[in-house]
Design a protein around this nucleic acid. Structure first.
Lengths: 173, 173
DNA sequence: TATTATATGATACACTTGTCTTACGGGAAA
DNA sequence: TTTCCCGTAAGACAAGTGTATCATATAATA
């Protein structure tokens, strides 16, 4: 590698780690392995990232546009709620293989952080922090249900999932 | 240390790690440090635990009786729901200093795993898996709200928290 | 072109990690 | 007591980690 812009180098490293994770256990992948796969020196890795985890964190923070919320889904009624679930779970399923890799490596919590930031930004835009706990409540439930959903390869239908979740909350109403 | 039963040795190691975490950053604590603090050899640590994370995992799995659910709180109505929130968040607040240590070390996800297992066991006892997603939905929201609660030192009242959470879910009902 | 700033690879270093081997000593049973 | 089992301490070892330094090469600017 010779003299690529910073964004590129970081991007190469992210891709290299994901590629390695398809083949090897996360814990067994060394920084040396990642640098070699990305075609950069080991010192270059440490210039951009402090730990392996930071690579995935960067992915969610700066290059995971495919998950971002382009709409606002503050659930004012069940229909809004179903819309939100459809969108978020749809994107999740499209990237399920990548999420399987992350779960296998116990890095799911980075996705939760991503959801927290996005839900908070979305809710605050609409409601200016009227209920600061609301976005975290939704992010937490969506995240945890997603992880269970992944266990059976996201086989359950999304509409069924939305229905199931509403039933769990609206006890007998 | 000479010849303690296995449970004792593990317990010493757990306590040693928590003690060290009060003083030092988690990442900076080495296995050598933990073993020294626990008064055991480094090889002994590796006999019982594979990684530092496993120590905390063991704590939640085997010695965190202070958080366990001794009652069943499947929320059939808002009153049940408030009861559950009171119990779980009450225990959380009692141990808030320990949870701060865990959060500082990015080990919160181990508490989520603990909640998942406990909610699942509780719900399944009552409903035999009628809605497999329900316990995960509740665990996810409780966990994530707890983490935000911790940010202001659990200052918000628990009853207020329960009310806030219900309002977030029951949009306008 | 000459100069400066910066991204890089290479190398070195002390420390940590995870595994392994060896020897010691308490506990249980003959 | 003698014997054996097994948890333990101590040490060795290769590999990985995180940091630092240095020389090189590219890009931007004067």
């Amino acid at each position: 590698m010779e003299y690529a812009p910073e964004e590129y180098t970081r991007h190469y490293i992210v891709q290299a780690l994901f590629k390695l994770m398809e083949e090897y256990e996360y814990e067994k992948i060394s920084v040396t392995d990642i640098a070699a796969k990305a075609g950069v020196g080991r010192a270059t890795f440490y210039r951009y990232f402090k730990r392996k985890e930071d690579v995935i964190e960067f992915y969610f923070n700066h290059s995971a546009r495919e998950f971002m919320f382009e709409q606002r889904y503050y659930p004012r009624c069940k229909a809004d709620y179903t819309d939100m679930v459809r969108s978020v779970f749809g994107k999740f399923r499209q990237n399920k293989e990548r999420f399987k890799l992350l779960k296998r490596a116990h890095l799911e919590y980075l996705y939760l952080g991503f959801l927290n930031r996005n839900f908070a930004a979305m809710f605050n835009e609409e409601f200016a922090g009227a209920n600061a706990y609301a976005p975290y409540l939704y992010a937490g439930m969506v995240f945890n249900v997603s992880m269970l959903w992944l266990e059976n390869d996201c086989a359950d239908s999304i509409d069924g999932l939305a229905e199931t979740m509403i039933n769990a909350i609206y006890f007998g109403q």
